[in-house]
Structure formats: C-alpha cells, structure tokens
C-alpha cells in the first residue's frame, strides 16, 4: 500500500508529551424536572505535536460543543461538570479569561466554519489580524502590520497589502476562510482547531483550503484537530480518526487502520453513507426498532445492526484494543469476524 508513508513519524511522535490532553470531559445541560442532558460524556482526547487528528460526528454528536468547551465558550447554559484539560501539561479551564495560563489564539487557535459571519463586519481584515497579533505578541502597530501582511501572503491571498484594507463583506467565502486561517496561525499557536471550517465552501475551493491548512500545520510543527461531519476529509488530511456519537467517543484509531477495518458499527454506518450498494447500506441501516420506552444502555443500540440483548442492559466501555485503537462496543467488527 502506498499510503502508509506517515506511520514512522507518528510512532516517533508518540513519545512526546501531548499538546492537548482532554481527560473525562463531561458537559451537561440542566433540564427542568428531569435528569441533566449529558451532551459530552467523559471525552478523552490526546493530540501530540505535529499530529493532525480528525474528529468525526454528525449533528448532535457534540463536536462543536467540544470545541467550545476547550475554547471556554460553552453555549446555552451548559456546564462543564467534570474532566481536566491540559495544554503542554499546563491545566486550564477558562481560556478567554484574561488570567488563564493558556491563551486562545496564542496557544490554541480556532478556525471557524462561517468566516463571513465570524469576522467583524465593521473592521477591515488588516485591523482584525493586527488586533490579535498586537495583543498576543505585544508588537508595535507597524511590526504587527508587517506580520499580518506576511500571514496573508502565506495563506495565498493575492495582493496581500491591498487586501489588508478590505472589508469582510468584500471577500468571497474562500478568501474569508483564508483570512481566518491567517488569524489562527498568526501567533504561532501550538494547536489549531478547525471546526467544520470547509463545509460551507465549494468543492474546488475546499480542496485548496484543506491543502493550505495541511501545509501550514506541517511547516510550523503545529498540531491540529480537524472537526468535521465529512469522514472523507479525515481519510486524506488526518493521522488519527476519532468518532464521536451522542457525546461519547465510540472509536479511535490511526487513520489507515481505521479505514481498512472500522471496528464500531457506527463507524461502518458512516462509511456506508458513501458506499454505492443500497442493499448493503440498507442491511446496516435498517434496524428493527426497540420496544417502546426502552432506553438502551449503549447509546447506539437503537440504530445498531449488530445489536444483542446485552447492548440494551449493559453500557459498553471504551476498550483499548492495542495499536493505538480504542472502541466502545461489546461486539466490534474485528478482522476475521
């Protein structure tokens, strides 16, 4: 196979301390007269230096919530009830707090999904980059401006000097996305999180932006977390894949191993969405419903083609299966089964 060129470096890096370490992150939303809605349940995640990790989940999986939890901006009254977050070994809780030891944009930077809505409409592109650079790096206005122009050039924006004075509404979606990438990388962060950053782009532009992101990360030894609902992106741009379902990690594996043999039935369901044979897809997807009122212990049991009685009564734990793989399933699909 020709696509295993990255394996060696990944093993070498495994020794280094993780850039980001999430341990048992749990976020709950209190509900009136009911038990809390646990939107993220004990999520563990480690990202090592120079590594690109793909986090895949569909609507409601909690992938954006995880980003927001890391960035210290949990929306809508949710509470970070337990778990620890560490950046290069330094624990942190509330990133945007001015006293936090780990600083957003400088240490952990975010690339957002809808740049035309996230850029301030009344500030020029240049002002927005300069603001971030000046605040975090303490440069003078002139130095910050020079650095901002360099960043715009680095993300392949044509004529960066004049683009500095452009307003966000004058940019196309692809251009705005590049500006956001430039902001994210302007202070040499140790980790870049991309939250569905390319889903709103046209396919040809999406490819350009993804390639750019990969180059920038590789060139600067930055680690990256690519959060997406499109599993195809992770196949080409990530070293490791983590699958999130209803707030839980259900599978984690090195990329090539994952795509050769996904273990968790949900991972297979995700792949099936791209498959061409409707009959096979239906076999995985058409699951007889559970009896009314049953609340299965395994969160995926109601959609699982491999469901057994045990799945309804006993919640599976996230099991280590060696070679850097973990799976949360009583009956995973393993090679030869």
């Amino acid at each position: 196979m020709t696509y295993q060129d990255k394996t060696d470096t990944t093993e070498a890096q495994a020794v280094a301390a993780p850039v980001l370490e999430l341990e048992g992150i749990t976020v709950a939303y209190p509900r009136y007269g009911e038990s809390d809605h646990v939107a993220l349940d004990a999520v563990d995640l480690k990202i090592r230096r120079g590594e690109i990790v793909g986090l895949v989940g569909e609507t409601g999986a909690g992938k954006t919530l995880l980003t927001r939890t890391v960035m210290g901006a949990i929306p809508g009254g949710g509470e970070h009830t337990s778990g620890a977050m560490r950046y290069n070994g330094t624990p942190f809780t509330d990133l945007p707090d001015d006293k936090s030891p780990v600083r957003p944009a400088k240490d952990i930077a975010l690339i957002v999904s809808n740049p035309r809505r996230e850029l301030n409409p009344v500030l020029t592109v240049g002002q927005q980059i300069v603001n971030v650079i000046r605040h975090h790096l303490g440069l003078s206005e002139k130095e910050a401006r020079a650095r901002a122009v360099d960043m715009l050039r680095a993300v392949a924006i044509p004529d960066p000097e004049s683009r500095m004075d452009a307003w966000p509404h004058e940019l196309s979606g692809g251009m705005a996305q590049r500006v956001v990438i430039a902001i994210a990388l302007s202070c040499d962060p140790g980790l870049v999180i991309s939250d569905d950053a390319t889903s709103a782009l046209d396919v040809t532009v999406q490819l350009q932006v993804l390639n750019l992101m990969k180059e920038m990360v590789a060139g600067s030894e930055t680690a990256a977390l690519i959060i997406t609902r499109d599993i195809a992106i992770t196949a080409h741009y990530c070293d490791r894949v983590v699958i999130l379902y209803k707030g839980e990690v259900v599978e984690e594996a090195p990329r090539d191993a994952f795509f050769d043999r996904p273990h968790h039935p949900y991972s297979i369901n995700l792949l099936a969405a791209f498959a061409h044979s409707p009959a096979l897809r239906e076999a995985w997807w058409d699951v007889p419903p559970l009896a009314d009122g049953t609340r299965p212990a395994c969160r995926f049991a109601d959609r699982c083609a491999r469901r057994q009685p045990r799945c309804v009564s006993e919640a599976p734990a996230l099991r280590d299966c060696g070679a850097g793989r973990r799976v949360r399933c009583h009956y995973p699909v393993e090679a030869g089964t």
Partner: peptide
C-alpha cells in the same frame, strides 16, 4: 477539475493531481 476535487473516504483514493483549478470563482 470538479471530479478531481471530490474527496472519497479512503486514504488510498487520493485526489488526482491533474487539472487542479486554481484561484477563485
């Protein structure tokens, strides 16, 4: 260029190098 930009979910199915469309629409 459009066909070449489609990502398929398997690492071995790389996007072909031919006819990459540069620039914006």
């Amino acid at each position: 260029g459009l066909m070449a930009s489609v990502l398929l979910p398997h690492p071995s199915l790389k996007t072909p190098e031919r006819m990459k469309l540069e620039g914006e629409i």
